[in-house]
Nucleic acid binder design. Structure first.
Lengths: 219, 219
DNA sequence: CGGGACTTTGAAACCCTTCAATGCCAGTGG
DNA sequence: CCACTGGCATTGAAGGGTTTCAAAGTCCCG
């Protein structure tokens, strides 16, 4: 049930962080309220984004009305690396006061062409996104809902806490989690309840999770 | 049931292809037989790879022995963009005479730092991989096995044929497809049989697929 | 206080998994 | 040439987990 363990933090190394400061010249920052659209299908100008605060969800609405969340973006994460891959997807703020920095893709590419360190840093951010997708793919491949939810909680804890604490707040609803894990929101509920009853986690509120028995979650 | 439609081909534009030729100075090419390991957990030196011919599968072996294929790599595709995200994953040739080019990551980064066009081309390849993962995520999120298999066939057709033909050969077994779609190989069989009986596809052999009614596959 | 969104719990139907067995095909050795 | 073996593909039947539909509970906010 364990996720793929990583040998390094998701937070980019400070060397890359320093190189990314070159983006400042074309940066603009905006704040979004919960549910507000950040970018949608067929925008005129394409941007590279980075989450500063809050959380965002990237999703696709399937024929039939079902929504599938393909990525959950937390502070530090980039999204919107060109290649036309974003067509058919929308990005929304998941909670109020979500702050994003955006950079025109054309400007980013022009800067990266001249600044090798920036180019490498961006490459690293893209590789980080790929690693995130691969881990999510493993979660989606779990057989039972309980395993999916367990791995999701571990992954989320790992992305938010830097391993210092076992408590965290979920920025999304049970319904969102369901659309993220490809199960129904009711099944998410039942799995959380089951984990709580087993003493694996405790809930100080529906979205206030504390991991009590990490080994059981991994197991 | 339709996959996310893309506005461009998966095959990189020729401008990027030209820029990628700069990698030639540190390239080495090898051929692999079916099932042969290309790279595994904890290699000493890291490489960037590109498939020339054949096919490769990237997978993780989960506790419990289950195998999950997270990526299927076809000619033109890159894999192995650093960031430590490859830990816990293995890559194998899926069929005989699979040919790969490999480039030491350290050399690639050194080249990209000095060559802005190469850096942009690599960024584009990474974005292409991200788009591939997002599409795969949508497939994994389908509710029924029939939808998963339908979308898989459409996606595979799109990646191999450049839309000129409706026939293609699967380089992987039913078991592999199951591990790729997170369903059992038996269910893959049943879905294929069902599609055949409905006249949606025809099979000239277990791995020789022809799409008869594309609209029905799209759902 | 009421509305609305979210969460939780219950029951029946459905789909997939698992276990099992058979069929098919290529490669091998007698 | 034929039997044999192993891997892969296919089909069947029983069991279990999730979805769906339904309803009630909770919390926040106007």
């Amino acid at each position: 049930m364990a996720q793929a363990s990583l040998g390094k933090d998701y937070v980019p190394a400070s060397t890359f962080e320093h190189s990314l400061e070159a983006l400042g010249s074309c940066e603009s920052v905006r704040s979004y309220s919960r549910g507000q659209e950040i970018c949608g299908y067929g925008e005129s100008e394409k941007y590279l984004y980075r989450v500063r605060e809050g959380a965002a969800r990237k999703f696709s609405v399937q024929p039939g009305g079902r929504r599938h969340i393909v990525d959950l973006l937390l502070p530090g994460n980039f999204f919107g690396f060109g290649c036309g891959g974003d067509e058919g997807f929308f990005v929304e703020a998941a909670i109020d006061r979500t702050v994003l920095a955006q950079y025109p893709l054309r400007r980013v590419n022009a800067l990266a062409r001249l600044d090798g360190n920036l180019a490498l840093a961006l490459q690293e951010m893209a590789a980080e996104a790929i690693a995130r997708f691969e881990r999510q793919m493993l979660i989606l491949g779990k057989t039972t809902a309980l395993e999916k939810v367990s791995c999701f909680l571990l992954e989320f804890s790992s992305r938010t806490n830097s391993r210092t604490s076992n408590a965290f707040a979920l920025p999304i609803s049970r319904y969102d989690i369901g659309d993220y894990l490809a199960i129904s929101s009711e099944t998410v509920c039942r799995s959380m309840t089951q984990l709580k009853q087993r003493g694996t986690i405790s809930l100080d509120g529906p979205r206030e999770v504390r991991i009590v028995d990490r080994a059981a979650l991994e197991g």
